[in-house]
Design a protein around this nucleic acid. Structure first.
Lengths: 171, 171, 171, 171
DNA sequence: CATGAATGAGCTTTCATTCAT
DNA sequence: GATGAATGAAAGCTCATTCAT
């Protein structure tokens, strides 16, 4: 799964053949099919495993209500996560854009994301925002946009400085 | 090219066969190869044509120096462009994440983007920003993030309201 | 289709690879898939084509009512058919025994066979037989049994003499 | 062996994987290879075991000369055997049609069948038949044809009534 | 006696590409 | 200009078989 994640992330899902994965992992093609029903299933397992890893760290100590400090922390955490598991995020941004593949993950993705979006919306409501829903969606889009640019080019995209600017805008 | 753009955008590049394109366009497979060297070349032509279409509307009347009003207008224009040519943007977000394919377009993309990024950086310098480069990169990331979310789900992502919020943050 | 029929009949359906067929027919593997959706479809086309060929010669000049002479002629015709298109019959006896495959052809086979069985039953009814249905089924079984033995070993199974004996039993 | 017989008979030899057999029998794949050299050997053992079971009941009290009553009894016995061990007979009719596989069993099959065929031929000679060899072959073909039809569709093929008709024709 | 992880040859199928017409 | 029959490399996948445990 690690080898496959790396290859899927670096070269893409369709371009990466089962044979390539097997060779890179020093195992036989057949063995992959002892553990995964097919190529799509392998992708699915990798992606769901990654999602669990990422989002389980969000669940802690939240009653679903954010203070301002917690909101700032949320943004910081979200961006910090990018630095670990870059491969997962690369795969995430590849997959999210493919409608056919996206369908496979839409449901589980929403299970993770919708409570977070709701939490953000509540936060903006409490802050007296005029349009909390749009504010929440903007946050989501900004985090994805920054994530995407950072993942694409980690050396040149000074994420720490960008993070600070974002936070300044929300204090 | 239109048919291929639509299919590439909706289903993905690898999943779309030349045969499918030909059938959808009511022409023969062979005819495609009279006009394009190969599948990659077809993709390249489509993408470059799209890039030209999009970015030629930016070039107008700019000496490379933005006033505050022009900066606001730039953001508005950038987001308004999404509403036309959704197919192109879908393809754009698909391709941008694939390193192997991205290489094909990196150069021409940079030719369009780097003057814009420079212009933004200059703007933030003139505004007395502490970190103009990071500010410019943030703008780029926000526009891509919002674009991606809008393209993925145009009905639910209220782009007009999001646009207003962004602008408010920059006035 | 001819090459495939011969191979399917001689070696069996599963044992005959598409590659073998292509090589024996001096064409490429890919070409087969221009004309047939998959291996099963190839088999299906071959079998239905063969069925049509065989049974169209039965339809002539019958109002569905057999005289004794016509009944005798029917038996003779049925057995004479074996001598042409032996490959088809070999395939027929292979397929008829495979439940999974048989399902594919059951419907079209019944379309051909059930009027014939009905005709035979009527004949035996008119002859004053005690159990016309069983008589008809016996005829069917005898023709298949003789067909099978002849096809399996045409040199040793003296079909002409067997045919005469059968007819004698029914005069 | 019982599990494998059932699966081979119901689905076919090639379509039935060793893994399927092992799972259906609640044992491991490896265990099968402790008792049988390979898949073909498993088939061979099953088939020979079945042949022995079937034909050992024929050998009794026969000096090789049939009276008329014994001949009638032989037909009755042959058809009664179908009702037990349907799975074996299904396998028998599948295998008998595959030349490649048939080769494996031809010799042992002939060991059982040729004395029977000889016995039948002698019977018809003693009856003053014009063509005893063809008569014997016809009996063989009829028994196989009836067997095949019965095995294919035991519910609809009224074997008792068919049996009576056959016997009536030979009294 | 029993397991099942592991292998790899070989299968069906797809598809970009060519080329005679 | 335009076709589509034909190719063949390469993909995903299956499965008989082995073997360390």
């Amino acid at each position: 799964m690690n080898t496959a994640l790396k290859l899927f992330a670096e070269e893409g899902y369709y371009i990466t053949s089962i044979d390539k994965i097997a060779k890179a992992a020093n195992i036989s093609k057949g063995l992959i099919y002892n553990y995964f029903q097919n190529k799509e299933d392998l992708l699915s397992e990798i992606f769901h495993f990654g999602l669990d890893e990422i989002f389980k760290s969000f669940d802690q100590n939240h009653d679903g209500i954010l203070t301002k400090d917690e909101f700032i922390l949320f943004i910081e955490n979200s961006l910090d996560k990018l630095e670990n598991s870059r491969d997962f995020w690369k795969l995430y941004f590849i997959l999210i854009m493919k409608p056919m593949i996206y369908k496979m993950f839409e449901k589980s993705l929403n299970e993770y994301l919708s409570p977070i979006m709701q939490m953000l919306e509540n936060y903006f409501t409490n802050q007296g925002s005029e349009n909390p829903e749009a504010e929440a969606k903007l946050i989501g889009a900004i985090l994805d946009g920054v994530g995407m640019h950072y993942i694409l080019n980690p050396e040149n995209f000074k994420i720490k400085e960008v993070k600070e600017i974002i936070i300044k805008k929300y204090i």
